[in-house]
């Protein structure tokens, strides 16, 4: 049980940050893809910059995980097709509903109950991928 409390707290923090940053706003996503504001680029850019810094420091062994192990990021499989096509399909959906998989849940918490339809459809979409996986180019 205690094991899960830390994940619950990280989730709560994540939800608060994404609402307060307006990253869950449909309008902010639209604005980003129309290149009409720096806001989202600023968020993603500084997140990556801090992330790079954190991982470079961890790589030198200066930060260890809570169990004393090395901080480890799993390597993504090599490939191009799946990333460019899958990524584009995801992008189409992201700009249409203005929410990626994190914000979907967060928006539900803010009171956008119709997100349940989006989440259900996203689960079906993932299921369809699982069925077609072996027939798709990767």
């Amino acid at each position: 049980m205690m094991k899960f409390i830390k994940f619950l707290l990280v989730g709560i923090f994540f939800g608060i940050v994404l609402v307060k940053s307006e990253a869950v706003s449909w309008y902010r996503i639209y604005e980003m893809f129309r290149f009409q504001s720096f806001h989202m680029y600023g968020i993603i850019g500084t997140a990556i910059a801090c992330g790079v810094l954190f991982l470079q420091i961890s790589k030198k062994g200066l930060i260890k995980s809570f169990s004393g192990a090395h901080i480890f990021v799993p390597k993504k499989d090599n490939g191009t097709v799946r990333y460019i096509i899958g990524g584009s399909i995801f992008g189409l959906g992201w700009a249409l509903i203005g929410a990626c998989p994190g914000p979907m849940y967060i928006l539900l918490g803010t009171g956008v109950y119709t997100m349940l339809i989006v989440i259900a459809a996203a689960i079906v979409g993932t299921f369809i991928y699982g069925i077609l996986k072996d027939k798709l180019p990767h």
Binding site: I44, A47, I48, G51, K76, D77, R82, Y83, I85, G86, G87, S88, I89, F90, G91, L92, G93, W94, L96, I97, A99, C100, P101, G102, M104, T114, I117, V118, I119, A120, A121, A122, I123, V124, G125, T126, F127, I128, Y129, G130, L136
Partner: peptide, 24 residues
């Protein structure tokens, strides 16, 4: 809502991640 959800769910798994997994 339905098409958006389907695209996100399918695309993200095909691409092996979303904004948190890939972009960040």
């Amino acid at each position: 809502l339905i098409i958006g959800g389907l695209l996100v769910g399918f695309g993200t798994r095909y691409a092996g991640g979303c904004t948190s997994g890939h972009a960040i």
